[in-house]
Amino acid sequence: MAYSDKVIDHYENPRNVGSLDKDADDVGTGIVGAPACGDVMKLQIRVEDGVIVDARFKTYGCGSAIASSSLVTEWVKGMNVEDAMSIQNAQIAEELSLPPVKIHCSVLAEDAIKAAIRDYQAKHAARAPRSEPVTEAEASK
């Protein structure tokens, strides 16, 4: 199976590989896995005033999984958290021209960014001062 030029570019020059301090207050961490193939992906974001200012990933998997997570870290930098939450795997798959058998890699990247945002939100819901009421929907995430 031939990889698209964009997948090869991200695979050979992955953007934003690395880790952020998962215990830091302003960092959200998402860890997801693909049971069918055993790929694992960690995606982290650092948030300031509701805007994602940094994003890092580590993906152990195929070229499409690496490219999907690399692309997502590029996209979300500078985005506000709500916009990042609405990223859909179809956008990733389209940008990278993923073939049908590799769509699950883009799903993994979507799951990872959502998990990272939820982790960030959960930290802040738990530590929010009483004067800032937490809605039930946020608290249950």
Binding site: I31, V32, G33, P35, A36, V40, K42, K58, Y60, H104, V107
Partner: peptide, 21 residues
């Protein structure tokens, strides 16, 4: 081979995936 939440491969827990990383 399926990702269906009920009839597909069971999802592994956070601790297991973190360990894999």
């Amino acid at each position: 081979e399926s990702t269906d939440p009920k009839q597909g491969a069971p999802a592994m827990g956070h601790a297991f995936l973190l360990d894999m990383i």
